[in-house]
Design a protein around this nucleic acid. Structure first.
Lengths: 148, 148
DNA sequence: GCTTGACTTCGAGTCGACTCGAACTCATAG
DNA sequence: CTATGAGTTCGAGTCGACTCGAAGTCAAGC
């Protein structure tokens, strides 16, 4: 049922749409990252749908935010298993959300340190006193004991 | 001559202070990440100062924010070479700052996608309609064509 | 009929940043 | 005087996520 106009896509087209190489797409299939078995045509070639492309876009976000392949596999496996395990899926997502938030916080902290040094250099270069940097310690710019 | 009370630290103490293993500290020396040659005592053992510990703390921030070792080596080399190259150092820092900001932005975007899914699951689980998720597409929660 | 190019499978190689283990030396405490 | 434990050097191994290459298949265009 549903719309009969199910556009089918070759691996090359999916590659173009997602930015993942064909090598990577095959690798992902092999790693069990798809939420449904990848179909083949008469000639044994992979046939994808736009839904699979959407899922791959989500995957890409999960990956780029540091979710390991085994965890994505687990999530995909739950979806594949069908309704009834939504709480588990929810849990994976919430955990990952917290994880990403932590990453952002850590990066922000590093950014603060880096930004302070950038500012210091900018000021000293402007004043013409930059050559006095690092005369005694890390660029004369001790970390104010960041709360860690 | 500065303060004569220059505390000297063993590699084990530095490890405890920085959280880097002794293996890693030796590795870092070998990779040329120090801003001054690491000194040795009569017995040939490494002797560190608190300044080196401060630098290592900066290093740790650079690393955790994704600066590759070769780039840190380059920066350390400039400091080691002494005054006169502050503009180059400044450049490295500014570039890295921009890079980290980009990472934060990318993570925030992924976070948005993930958060939307978390919210969706929370709502559906609450409503008791979670079993209708993923009936047609990636969890019935199409990405609203995020500006990429 | 032949070439082209996208596809197939498989296994091996790469990369960065550690991480580990083995075999050794050395200074101090009991 | 020996045992302990921290240090030394060196080279090899690990890990995750690709990435690549080889050898072969297949459908369409000339």
């Amino acid at each position: 049922m549903s719309t009969a106009a199910e556009t089918t896509l070759s691996i090359g087209q999916v590659s173009a749409l997602t930015g993942l190489t064909t090598h990577t797409l095959r690798f992902y299939e092999q790693e069990g990252l798809f939420v449904a078995p990848v179909r083949r045509n008469a000639a044994g070639r992979r046939v994808f749908t736009t839904e699979e492309v959407e899922w791959l876009k989500v995957c890409t976000k999960l990956r780029s935010s540091g979710m390991p392949l085994p965890e994505i596999r687990r999530y995909a496996g739950l979806v594949l298993a069908g309704p009834g395990n939504e709480v588990e899926r929810f849990d994976i997502l919430r955990r990952h959300e917290a994880n990403v938030q932590q990453q952002v916080d850590d990066l922000q902290e590093a950014l603060t340190v880096i930004h302070r040094k950038v500012e210091l250099y900018a000021r000293r270069l402007d004043e013409g006193t930059a050559d006095q940097l690092w005369t005694n310690g890390p660029e004369c710019d001790p970390l104010p004991d960041a709360a860690e």
